[in-house]
Amino acid sequence: EPLWIRPDAPSRCTWQLGRPASESPHHHTAPAKSPKILPDILKKIGDTPMVRINKIGKKFGLKCELLAKCEFFNAGGSVKDRISLRMIEDAERDGTLKPGDTIIEPTSGNTGIGLALAAAVRGYRCIIVMPEKMSSEKVDVLRALGAEIVRTPTNARFDSPESHVGVAWRLKNEIPNSHILDQYRNASNPLAHYDTTADEILQQCDGKLDMLVASVGTGGTITGIARKLKEKCPGCRIIGVDPEGSILAEPEELNQTEQTTYEVEGIGYDFIPTVLDRTVVDKWFKSNDEEAFTFARMLIAQEGLLCGGSAGSTVAVAVKAAQELQEGQRCVVILPDSVRNYMTKFLSDRWMLQKGFLKEEDLTEKKPWWWHLRVQELGLSAPLTVLPTITCGHTIEILREKGFDQAPVVDEAGVILGMVTLGNMLSSLLAGKVQPSDQVGKVIYKQFKQIRLTDTLGRLSHILEMDHFALVVHEQIQYHSTGKSSQRQMVFGVVTAIDLLNFVAAQERDQK
């Protein structure tokens, strides 16, 4: 057995438009009618409502009807409940999964919650491996369901041993009777949507819809739904939504950006999952974080739909894509998950301010006199920076000697690579993860907040409520011999709460 199987392995699926269902090699399930009293909570997966979006479509000038398939009504709160249950049931049916076995899954959280929910009911041990950027709410729900959680670096490539995929496979090879159901490759993922989600949409719309818009992560949702719609409703256009920084969209030119990270969760990847059939997507749109969270908040405030950030991405694209539809036509959007997962993220004004998705003037509360002053007023001194090749031991000596707790790590040209902190280095040394002679590049981390000289002290204040420091950066445009230009970030300084307090105190003292 291989040590790991690539999540982007070539698909062996034989589905073709027009091929009889009787030739399918898979076990198919028909939607079942729910009894009045459910035998367990797993029976509350599927049969989610279709809700008309009344205000947002009109606000953006849509002539067509805009409908939302509300997947956050599933038992675990997301569309991923469907595939989690289906993968477990299919693994039980073919004898792969037996009582007492362990389920391991690399996930952005929602599939993990679905699997942990099913594992709690069915009696399996469950280990979820997820990147650090995923919300604390997801972690809390997983723990409450009895799952064990392993976190991995957000910026690790999918084929790196440190990625959530790599760590999951390492655990599988170490733990007896453990299984990775593997949402990236498992046919049960798109089949769950082909058999149930798509049929529900067709039934709820009486077979009449002209466009379907869905955000894409593993691709199982859009693949399964689109294949069924292509068979039953061939005139329906399928629109895929991919965040900026991901590479799922086609044509490839759409993916060209210097951005590699994004805040919206559960969609987009740096590889093409095996289950994603991009041939059934008629057109791709890219979405960005700001519009995703703005539209998610709009869905909550104006439509009462308590959905997550990827739902915002989907609707932001839908109001663009559906401009081509006329009166009497219908566009369906998939709202994948609930706001429950993001209470401390985009639902929080403070978080939105820190990330730059909300401006101070958007909030009406009274601010102190210094709130709208610029960061450049602080008069920061030149920063202490270190090269990635310097040793951890030497870096600790320098920081202690100069009285700093942290320093930016830059390359020879001064471009920011990340940050090192005294606390992080000492804990890594004590844990045996690094040696004093190791290069400081081994303990770089990139989960820090950046701020510009033109940003306000109010925004800085919000950042420092949650973080010990902020890195002050400025952009530099560099022209190359080819005539092309590129933008790079340079370090201007490091600012802490002490710097802000000293500035405010000094100004008030001078005024007296």
Rank of each mutant, 00 (worst) to 15 (best):
E365T: 14
T456K: 13
V333F: 10
A407M: 05
H372I: 11
R488F: 14
D467P: 08
G483T: 12
I477Q: 02
D349Y: 06
Q435P: 10
S287E: 13
G458V: 10
N424I: 09
I398W: 07
D242W: 02
H462A: 14
F285C: 07
T314E: 02
G432Q: 02
I267W: 06
C392L: 12
L325E: 02
H462T: 09
A318D: 02
W284H: 04
I463F: 14
R330D: 14
K286T: 04
E263H: 09
Q487Y: 09
F295S: 14
Q302T: 15
P243N: 02
R297A: 08
V410D: 10
V494F: 11
A413R: 12
V504N: 15
E303P: 02
N341I: 02
C392V: 13
K320I: 09
I398R: 08
V332C: 13
E360Y: 13
I398N: 11
K446N: 14
I238C: 06
L399M: 15
V415G: 12
L429F: 13
A292S: 06
G432V: 12
F271N: 02
F503W: 15
D510W: 13
S437E: 12
Y269P: 02
F469G: 12
V386C: 13
L254D: 07
T279H: 14
P273S: 04
V281G: 04
T257V: 09
E252F: 06
G403S: 14
I398T: 15
D349W: 02
E327N: 02
R488H: 13
S313L: 02
G418M: 05
D270S: 06
E250M: 08
A292Y: 06
S427R: 15
S338L: 07
V264D: 04
Q450P: 02
K320V: 06
F469N: 15
G414F: 12
D405M: 02
E258K: 13
F295H: 02
A292M: 02
T385I: 13
E263P: 02
G379D: 14
H394I: 02
V410C: 12
R278A: 02
G458A: 14
T454S: 07
K446A: 02
K442I: 13
K359D: 02
G393S: 13
E327M: 02
L353A: 10
A413L: 13
H372T: 14
I272C: 08
R400V: 09
T385P: 02
S348N: 11
K355F: 11
G309L: 02
T454V: 14
E263Y: 11
A296I: 02
T314L: 02
D362A: 14
L500M: 11
A322G: 05
P251N: 04
R330Y: 11
D510V: 13
I444S: 13
K345H: 04
S313D: 02
E291I: 07
T257F: 09
F357K: 13
I398S: 11
V410Q: 14
G309V: 02
T261S: 15
F492V: 12
L353H: 02
A321V: 12
F357V: 02
H372Y: 11
V495L: 09
S486A: 07
T294L: 06
G418R: 06
K512W: 04
A322C: 09
H462E: 12
Q507T: 02
F404D: 04
R374G: 09
E327A: 05
T274G: 02
E327I: 02
L373V: 13
I398Q: 07
V472L: 14
I463N: 05
P436V: 13
V319C: 15
S427H: 09
N341D: 02
Y262N: 02
I398Y: 13
S310L: 02
K449A: 15
T314D: 05
F293I: 04
M343Y: 02
G308F: 02
I444A: 12
D282V: 10
L335Y: 07
A431T: 14
L429S: 10
L380F: 02
G304L: 02
E324I: 13
E360P: 02
V375N: 15
K449I: 07
D277F: 02
Y479D: 06
D405R: 09
V434L: 10
G414N: 02
L417M: 12
K367S: 09
F293N: 02
V264S: 02
T279P: 14
S287W: 02
D270F: 04
V420H: 06
A311T: 14
M343A: 05
P251Y: 02
M298R: 10
L353K: 15
N255M: 02
Q354F: 08
V409P: 10
A505E: 15
Q406Y: 09
Q476C: 09
D499S: 04
R452G: 11
G432E: 10
G418W: 07
Q439R: 09
K402G: 15
